[in-house]
């Protein structure tokens, strides 16, 4: 299983902050395309963290990964 986390505007757009999906040996980039299609969201400027560390688009998912979609941050 893979855990997906959505925050802020994305959470509202997806309608859910957290969900689980079946593990597939795909890259983050591929996962982003799937999400975009499924939820009609634009992830172009969205960073992705794998297990709480920012990850490159070409990183491949591992079983048990927690994948967070991080829209441009606005803390401070």
């Amino acid at each position: 299983m893979i855990t997906l986390l959505f925050f802020a505007s994305l959470k509202e757009a997806v309608g859910n902050g957290q969900m689980s999906i079946e593990y597939e040996p795909i890259t983050i980039e591929q996962l982003k395309r799937q999400i975009e299609v499924k939820y009609g969201v634009n992830l172009q400027n969205v960073m992705v963290a794998v297990n709480e560390e920012y990850a490159q688009e070409n990183q491949r998912l591992q079983p048990g990964d927690v994948i967070a979609f991080i829209p441009p941050v606005s803390g401070g």
């Binding site: 505007s9 509202e12 400027n45 963290a49 829209p71 941050v73 606005s74 803390g75 401070g76």
Partner: peptide
């Protein structure tokens, strides 16, 4: 750096609506 990498977001509430704020 906080404004670049720390996953925290703010939503503005105005009299006529709301918006999640992006990079500031």
């Amino acid at each position: 750096r906080i404004k670049q990498i720390v996953p925290i977001w703010k939503k503005e509430y105005w009299e006529d609506g709301t918006q999640w704020v992006g990079n500031q």
